[in-house]
Design a protein around this nucleic acid. Structure first.
Lengths: 247, 247
DNA sequence: GAAATAGTGTCTGTAAGACATTATATT
DNA sequence: AATATAATGTCTTACAGACACTATTTC
């Protein structure tokens, strides 16, 4: 380990301009019967780009605090939401000369799904205002800071695609949950109804759920409660959901 | 555009240490009836990490040459292979304090599939020796430079997973190709046989192929030639390949 | 016509979609 | 008992897998 200084003194061949390196988060939750995403408002200070615009939470990698990109994402998530998420997936990276007026920059984007119940939005710090926005309220096409509108669009697309053949939406619910609740989560994310019978067969066949006993969720009848198998953060189904009408 | 200098003079709040930013490539091809991957040998020079070890082709982002990460990947691919690939997908990014002895670094990894016929390996430059290695010859578990063994493992996993439900292997063949050739490409990537009848139905149903007329590929009988639909770099199948025996 | 490969047809199995029906709780 | 929701059953359809069969070319 030679140790890197800024500017690097010990390695002449490394004396070239380095891009800025950031990590951004796309945090999804279910709130008010809608799929929502967490955004923060850019500060209104001199030299800060996109003042007052909404942006994905995130920021610069701190080479002294963060052992890795994933660790950096976890840290930022914890700072904003107080949550240690069990599911954090890399969405991809975006980098170029034009995306940040401060210079050539590359961001590593992670996305996560959280039950709203576990979240307590942290005020202050770099993110004056953190706020939830419904994904289908036009946020995707509003002018977010940087290229975050594009990133959010890709994130939503990836989420919806993946929900068609994985157990992802289970992470949106506090445990234990019932199958009707899980089905509703799927329907809210996909934006369409799903057949109950097929849904249940499919979920139970994937064996990523464990029974926890009947639950009263305010319905006339008790429903079986389930929690996710601890060792299986994500189950893959043999086919995608796809209504007949598509063909 | 404020313009970034090194060190930045105009933005006190940006005077922190920046990670190194690189782009690496996982280049797959079909060669000698095997799935192979392109590796380059690390130079044996003072201050260069992992001297003589094999590594994925790639290198530092050049903020003056490269408009974006994708452009950087295209440039490096062209430099090494002389190819302008029609298919370049981001695999993900790897970053951390420990992966490069020169300091905190993050690499953005792209992968591509090429017909071997179009490639002419470029000698000299930063990559003394570029060479093809069969994926299943233990390269995945050899000690590659940096964390490239891990990256390669993920790339192979992603490729094999995606081949189960997409038209990816078509990019491994020079056009036009025949369906038997395409099937062989699938079988080589997947490492198992695939049923002919189902395969053909599936490929033709996906309608990403255009007939180009019968071809003589040295077989006793002519076969229909196909090329990929120009506007469809990747077709998705409704289900994955999966032999009965799995269930 | 023998041989080898290209291409097609038939049967079966799996799992989803559609929708009807039964079960269980509350009022 | 009425009602609302939970859970199950039945029928159909799509499409892959297995495997047998036909077609076309060269020798």
């Amino acid at each position: 380990m030679t140790g890197t200084t800024h500017p690097p003194k010990d390695a002449p061949e490394l004396r070239f301009e380095r891009p800025l390196t950031t990590v951004d988060l796309v945090v999804f939750t279910l709130r008010e019967d809608q799929l929502q995403v967490l955004l923060v408002q850019r500060p209104d200070r001199p030299k800060e780009p996109f003042p007052n615009d909404w942006a994905l939470p995130g920021g610069f990698v701190d080479v002294h605090k963060d052992a890795s990109l994933q660790a950096c994402a976890q840290r930022k998530l914890k700072e904003k939401t107080g949550v240690d998420t069990p599911y954090l997936e890399q969405l991809g990276s975006w980098g170029g000369a034009a995306r940040d007026p401060r210079g050539w920059s590359a961001t590593h984007v992670y996305f996560t799904l959280l039950p709203i119940t576990g979240v307590t939005l942290q005020e202050g710090g770099n993110s004056q205002d953190a706020q939830w926005f419904p994904v289908d309220s036009g946020v995707q096409h509003q002018t977010l800071a940087f290229d975050h509108a594009e990133i959010l669009r890709v994130a939503v697309q990836r989420l919806r695609a993946k929900v068609e053949y994985t157990s992802l939406p289970a992470h949106l619910l506090p445990q234990p949950f019932t199958l009707p609740q899980l089905q509703k989560a799927y329907e809210l994310v996909l934006g369409r109804a799903v057949d109950k019978s097929g849904f249940r067969t499919r979920m139970l066949a994937a064996s990523f759920l464990e029974e926890t006993g009947p639950i009263d969720v305010g319905a006339p009848r008790l429903a079986m409660g389930y929690r996710m198998n601890a060792d299986q953060p994500l189950a893959y189904f043999p086919r995608t959901f796809s209504p007949r009408s598509d063909h």
